[in-house]
Design a protein around this nucleic acid. Structure first.
Lengths: 192, 192
DNA sequence: AATTTCTCTTGCCATATGGCAAGAAACGGT
DNA sequence: ACCGTTTCTTGCCATATGGCAAGAGAAATT
């Protein structure tokens, strides 16, 4: 159990060995090919995943039909549409593999069972949701108070692997700018 | 119990009468004078509140020292710093009464007790958090894909009471623009 | 009622970022 | 290795929004 990939996610200290043996086997390994959709607009999320390998992007389609990246995920991250998964309603977002991926999947029913029966599992789940909330809020404040160049620099610092593995256009929409502008920003930074 | 203000918040259907009798008395009524701080930057949130009467604003101070409204609250809303309350860490935000307010308060310890002992309480709490997450994400996407004028129109539509009771400057920072620009936007809309 | 303070409006000009289009470069499939 | 597609860069100009400052108006304080 200790060498299972998920043992890095559900760490001892937060869980007893016995709890780990209850929790970990409930996940199943799933592989996604590059460009495969983990979730598509209009569907209700029935699962969530932990990424063992690969890169994933979530995005929404705005009123003009342009897509806007809402998040990027890689090894160790939880991939979940919180709203659709918990409110049991169709999502407005898409989640797509940017590369071939290996993930560990849990379905809603199994989640509920674990959530209501294991206190430490609830605490850990709540913590993850709150951390996502915090990240989203930080991004939001940054969108308001920082210039595009600073937002990009911050992303490079906080998620360097993302910047190296995701296309310029997809990063640009995440930062709320056009690909053209991001290209210019990169050029400026390069010459600093 | 049915005529208690909180009976509108914790509705039957989600809770048994017995659960309501356990939950509701754990809240205590608190009054805040205009301009009082419910939470100040650097403190760790020990409580959260439901607003019975009045207007409240949360805001963060950005790197240049300007304040940015992050949310507004009024009758029926939950006022909580999710991150500080659940992760037990100092907040970067401030929460301040815009008018005299009447609220119902619950502290962290009591919350934990209810959360871990009453399934429906956990479900309701998780639902609130996820709804906040959704609202924040919608605001985020709107910041990226809509023009300032549209963001303002949307706010007017979704929270008309806020627009009527909060100063132009505070609304402007929430929308990510300056008070000058919002003033011009209002003028344009008025002449449409 | 007078005074101070805060909020809102308006003008002038500055700047960050967008839109479009063309070419260059990188990538992917056969 | 080749061709077609996608991604990235760059130029030119347009536009949304910001910065500053002055005045008008509203609200709070004495």
């Amino acid at each position: 159990m200790q060498q299972h990939f998920l043992a890095n996610i559900f760490k001892e200290g937060q869980f007893t060995a016995q709890e780990l043996e209850t929790i970990i086997p409930r996940f199943s390994e799933v592989r996604f090919e590059k460009n495969a959709f983990l979730l598509a607009e209009g569907k209700t999320a029935g699962n969530y995943w932990f990424v063992q390998q690969g890169y994933i992007r979530s995005f929404a389609i705005d009123t003009e039909g342009d897509d806007i990246s809402t998040n990027f995920y890689t090894t160790g991250d939880i991939v979940i549409d919180w709203t659709s998964f918990f409110l049991r309603k169709p999502t407005r977002e898409n989640i797509q593999a940017l590369t071939d991926c290996v993930c560990w999947q849990l379905d809603f029913e199994t989640f509920q069972q674990l959530f209501h029966s294991i206190e430490s599992f609830r605490e850990a789940g709540r913590k993850r949701l709150v951390e996502s909330y915090f990240e989203l809020k930080s991004h939001n404040i940054s969108m308001i108070s920082d210039q595009a160049k600073d937002r990009y620099k911050r992303l490079v610092k906080e998620k360097p692997q993302i910047v190296q593995n995701v296309s310029l256009k997809q990063i640009a929409t995440y930062l709320g700018i056009t690909d053209t502008s991001l290209s210019r920003i990169r050029k400026e930074i390069a010459s600093e």
